[in-house]
Design a protein around this nucleic acid. Structure first.
Lengths: 335, 335
DNA sequence: TCGCTCTACTAAAACGATTTCGTACTATGG
DNA sequence: CCATAGTACGAAATCGTTTTAGTAGAGCGA
């Protein structure tokens, strides 16, 4: 593989001049730059990023922490869609994305932080992880530029899907259609779940409704069988809800399939999902849900991360809330 | 950050000895190794992977080509699930995964091959891409270790989901339940599609059935509206099929939702999807489909790739077919 | 004791870039 | 014509590893 010294030999310039020419240093005249670039192309020169990193202490490489958390991992459309957007934005700005892991060295597992240091990562994007894992916290508090999704660490910028707004939008939609008895089956206890519950209860309060605590059910994200199990006692209440919000679209679609199947159902129940996965738009009836703006979340995350890397002086940790939008489907019906 | 020379100073050994001790060279006695490792731990030493790569010409980094092809990209559960498995396997063997891209250097976009060379990637996994893109072909033919998924390049190892077997299994299942008039709406023309059509027709032939060519419909993967459009004329045929195979689970689920909705339908149509996404198991009725073994595909792909990297002499390009399995759901009914 | 083989170690040269100081030369103003 | 400033370039150090080619000393058999 051609290197800088090959170009130097061929052009008669020194390594220093070639390097400067290729990097657009102002002290090199146009004509020289042209010669150098021409020869570089002829030789098929490709800069060696590791040699570069070694000297510059800049790798133009970002770590992505993406752990198969809720047994959904990369397959969760919300997260993978964030990752996709992050990938596009990073490429646009000239950075690579490498998955973080506990890669081992000499039979010894490395911590995430060690991994990041070892690869000289310029910054880290934490998309999906167990935020309470000490190894993750260590990473977040290390001083390396870190941006997190849907979780706030002190000193790190966080990009949050606006869960309060999400639940509020759904509530308003149901309320407007005449629903007053609304239940919410939420996912397992996480930060996001807390926000959703808060958003839900705030919306109810805003309308002067006080919902029985039995209207709140707990289940697990992306495990519809747990959701159905939580739903059952709620429907058996003496005064059952007329509308129920599910923790995610998968549960809602599962319920939908089950419901349309049982033609024998007594009263029609309105319901909504959460996330806005593609399928919700394709099925009939279209699912009512809140579409999280995962694309924007991924894009902004990388944007903020790279901005901080490239000009640390301007950096101030922020919490950015990204609003999604209501998808008015057909599964919340008029009362 | 602590470096080897710091350990050397502290222990009194030379850089060379420290390096060898850390890398398990046989010429260093146990006692020395112990001392060195102890001090390394105390100083929080983390090896610099780029300095290492520079010298060794081994980065322990693999490139992953994953292009948002059919506007499904990372969100396609089949692919993201392969990626997830690849990630796990790579970590297990001490390699990192970096997304390939057209990262630019000095305002100039790099080809995939240049990118790979620049990052010193030890090998490439092509998961999803436009295989006819010259930039992708260049990469595949460059001599770098490359493994592809669902496409065969000369000289590269390819891991293939067994599409012939998939269509055959589905056909057998339908046939066993009494279906003789079976239609297949396939995706856009790709290598995979060709294999599926071939598998489908072979299965029919094996039973001495000759299906009217009108039973084959063309649509696009993951665009259910095109699938529904292709289905319509087929159902209007004078002699319509009793069972139809869809190109993917998304279309099948879309159809399911639509079908259960229209209670007015005249005759029940049996159908099946393809892929085996999680949701197919959750809904009621359970979808009949062919579950591709994406986990094994991802794992094997990385395994073969690393084996080739670590012992190139043993390398012989192979085409590995990975069988999936039939999911006997409830959407193919007895006739 | 001599020569030989091991063992345990080291000095120094890479690897391929960037960057800091220079330096030689040209242009310019007084 | 001289001093000065600016322009275009280069020598060499540096980043943190690995590795080659050696060396000093111990052990050992004859």
């Amino acid at each position: 593989m051609a290197k800088i010294s090959d170009i130097a030999k061929r052009t008669g310039y020194s390594n220093a001049t070639v390097s400067k020419a290729l990097n657009g240093s102002p002290e090199i005249p146009e004509s020289t730059v042209a010669t150098v670039k021409k020869v570089a192309r002829e030789l098929g020169y490709v800069p060696s990023s590791f040699a570069r990193t070694l000297k510059m202490r800049r790798s133009f490489n970002l770590g992505v922490l993406f752990v198969d958390q809720t047994n959904a991992g990369l397959r969760h459309e919300y997260f993978s869609s964030i990752l996709e957007a992050a990938k596009v934005e990073a490429e646009k700005r000239g950075y690579d994305l490498t998955f973080m892991s506990h890669t081992n060295y000499g039979g010894l597992k490395m911590s995430y932080l060690q991994h990041a240091k070892s690869r000289g990562m310029d910054g880290i994007l934490i998309v999906s992880a167990n935020f309470l894992d000490p190894a993750v916290e260590e990473l977040a508090q290390s001083g390396l530029p870190v941006v997190t999704i849907d979780y706030v660490y002190n000193g790190c910028t966080a990009i949050m899907s606006d869960n309060e707004n999400g639940m509020n939008s759904l509530f308003e939609a149901a309320y407007a259609l005449g629903h007053r008895k609304i239940a919410f089956i939420h996912g397992e206890e996480t930060d996001v779940t807390k926000r959703r519950i808060a958003g839900f209860l705030q919306a109810a309060k805003a309308h002067g409704l006080s919902l029985p605590s039995a209207y709140l059910g707990e289940a697990y994200y992306h495990r519809p069988e747990t959701v159905m199990a939580a739903l059952e006692p709620i429907l058996r209440l003496p005064d059952p809800p007329t509308c129920v919000f599910f923790p995610d679209d998968i549960s809602a679609i599962t319920f939908l399939a089950r419901q349309t199947q049982e033609a024998k159902r007594i009263h029609p129940l309105s319901f909504a999902g959460y996330d806005g996965i593609d399928l919700t738009k394709m099925i009939h009836p279209m699912l009512s849900t809140y579409v999280q703006n995962s694309e924007e979340i991924g894009t902004i995350a990388i944007d903020k991360l790279i901005n901080r890397i490239e000009d640390p002086r301007l950096f101030v940790p922020e919490v950015v809330k990204v609003k999604g939008h209501l998808q008015s489907g057909d599964t919340i019906q008029k009362r």
